[in-house]
Design a protein around this nucleic acid. Structure first.
Lengths: 233, 233
DNA sequence: ACCACAGTATGGTCAGACCATACCGAACCA
DNA sequence: TGGTTCGGTATGGTCTGACCATACTGTGGT
């Protein structure tokens, strides 16, 4: 029994080491969006591991939306640092919804929360509303429920953007992506979208005037109109 | 020019096909948490791809918190479907904070929003508060700022759990994880935690009585006490 | 000055090998 | 009968080396 100590419960896998090393380099070298990571083969040699392990680490980083890989040559090729938290969140929600470890109800309630917060903050910040107006006119031109939802999504994401919080905006985008099919059905069931239009105008107006309370209220009533079945309680 | 059509702008990589196939099987076979995926070698053969591609797909699924891989043999080995959205979110936040594509301020504002929502809903649902009480006494026994924050995190995550929304709870967990260091500093700067304790008691009490408005208010004031520097505006 | 083409660095994929782990089961004892 | 030991085996983890597809780079010819 020369084994006096315990080994760690979970041994760290090689690609996890690589991940930690890359993360460290990002922090130490102050790398930011747009900068390039070394080529896979170089990283493998520098860290003394196989290219496979480096690739698995890259896959993780890509999944989390911090790098984007591009084959070929030149300044745009290779692994470039990016910032796509929304695509990562979208994948996460889609898979967990598919696994039934999350329910649509939870997604919609979360959206409700964010929507109110974002509208209030956009109003308080007197944010620019031109993107909102553009989405509004897009909805007017829409010829199908799908197209309408497309611009409706743009409208609500623009509110989140206007709140000035990029995390909130990313979450909003992924929530809307996950709900797309559901939203289309809701619009089809509703038929007439004139009530929704009036709500949108009211929201835009409140943000324009900087009236946070009115914006919150308008958003809340808008959601009740759009998804009446969820407000039984 | 015999090239009459356009090729897709983005060719799908093999591991992405594998990912889609696995996702399809999860949906069609109705797989849920606890079920096992085929072994990497079998999947590779079934799908006609190399094991490397299957592994990269696995790495993505693992990163998103839907599978957990285990070597060895037996029922617990292999790739098992799990549900860990919070670890995925934690990684995502940590990396984006490191990239400076998110700022701590945005994380804290998001936490503020969630915290109020969760407290109100926990109160409205008359949720069980025994976990809250346990965390509270844990804070009383704490002998260091780190230990205090540990139980404080448990307290606030328990509120999120009590709201009944697993997505909210997952986001809350990952937000708190990301802020850990920051919270410890805030507690150290504060020195005396008796104000925080009174706030916690007040929150617990409001939830216990089912007073949603009071719970919201109590949480809001609590955060102002804990992070006074963020409420200058 | 322009253009065509070979060179080259990059990621993407594959095949095959070997290791570490952990269960399974048969053979072997008590 | 009951337990123990030990080899077999299925699993993920890692490595090597090769080849392909892509897209820029530089060179040489016109």
């Amino acid at each position: 029994m020369d084994d006096s100590g315990w080994r760690p419960v979970k041994r760290t896998r090689t690609f996890e080491d690589v991940l930690a090393q890359i993360e460290r380099r990002i922090a130490e070298d102050g790398l930011t969006v747009g900068d390039r990571l070394p080529a896979e083969r170089h990283l493998a040699e520098q860290l003394g591991v196989s290219r496979s392990s480096v690739r698995e680490a890259m896959r993780v980083l890509e999944t989390l939306g911090v790098v984007s890989s591009q084959a070929g040559r030149g300044p745009d090729a290779g692994a470039v640092l990016t910032s796509r938290p929304d695509t990562a969140l979208t994948d996460l929600l889609r898979l967990h919804l598919g696994l039934a470890s999350l329910e649509m109800r939870e997604v919609i309630d979360t959206r409700h929360m964010i929507e109110q917060w974002a509208a209030a903050h956009a109003a308080a910040a007197r944010a620019d509303t031109s993107a909102l107006a553009a989405a509004l006119s897009g909805m007017d031109r829409a010829k199908s429920a799908e197209e309408f939802v497309e611009h409706d999504t743009a409208f609500h994401c623009a509110i989140a953007d206007a709140s000035g919080n990029r995390l909130i905006a990313a979450i909003m985008r992924s929530l809307r992506d996950s709900m797309r099919r559901y939203s289309v059905e809701a619009v089809q069931r509703l038929g007439d979208t004139s009530i929704l239009r009036a709500d949108h105008v009211r929201i835009l107006d409140a943000i324009d005037r900087g009236d946070a309370d009115e914006a919150t209220l308008a958003v809340s009533e808008h959601l009740a109109h759009a998804y009446p079945s969820l407000f039984d309680h």
